[in-house]
Amino acid sequence: MEEGIPMNRQIKVAVLTMEGTNNEEEAFLSFKHSSTSPEIVHLKKLENKIKRFEDYDILFFPGGFSGGDYVRAGAIMASRLRSTLLKDLEQLVESGKPVLGSCNGFQVLVELGLIPNVEGEYGIEAALAPNISNRFEARTVYLKINKGNCLFLKDFIDEEVVKLPIAHSEGRFVTRDPDILKGIIKNGMNVVSYSDELGRPQGYPWNPNGSEQNIAGLCNKQGNVLGIMPHPERVFHYVTESDWTRTEKREGMGSRFFSSAVSFVREKF
């Protein structure tokens, strides 16, 4: 671990990619517009040791359909990582560096056992199952923020209600057994939840996929790994929010996830 980053040193971000991932472009741009130095890194380069996880300050798992997702969402990418890179990845997580996965990236993080990791053994404790509507859902949802110690939420106000786009067919968060869910709630790991516009929990379509406890985003206990079904990287600028022509707001809601992580790295490393 390094001893603090001087302001003139660029923060290095790896946006992972393999066949079928998408969102790399907007994730790359979101980091770039957050004054970091992002790089789109093909999994192959990490497997071949041309690139190493330890070279980066922040890791991003993009959405999409890694490997086609013809098995189970996120399973193919996770098993590729598991076979050669799991140790490096666990080390990076334990070092406290920020790791963010959105949509398919969330699914990969769960398949890798990096979240929720209630038991602390990196086992697969949950899954993102097909939506209860049984179809792909692309829409904007309301989300209630419960910051806890999640570093990606530093720039939010606790209990604030925000809007982000979703686009997925497998986003229903289900835990392996009730104890895992209890552990998540007890530890306050359910940091982002689907709600109505006033922050109240509601059923479908407010909860677009039928997730247990309306879970939309989940953070590990240490607060440095966030998996989230909605897409912060798609609303970095306010003009890509679906209702921007009706609001006076001029800040993209997604940008706060990035600014939170960047200021965390600046302070901590």
Binding site: N23, F136, A167, E233, R234, F236, V239, T240, T245
Partner: peptide
């Protein structure tokens, strides 16, 4: 239309629908 992803690439300023969320 909501089965089609219309926000990927993070550059959709106006999509197929607009107005109050929901």
């Amino acid at each position: 239309v909501r089965q089609y992803d219309h926000t990927v690439r993070g550059s959709t300023v106006i999509g197929p629908f607009s107005g109050i969320v929901g």
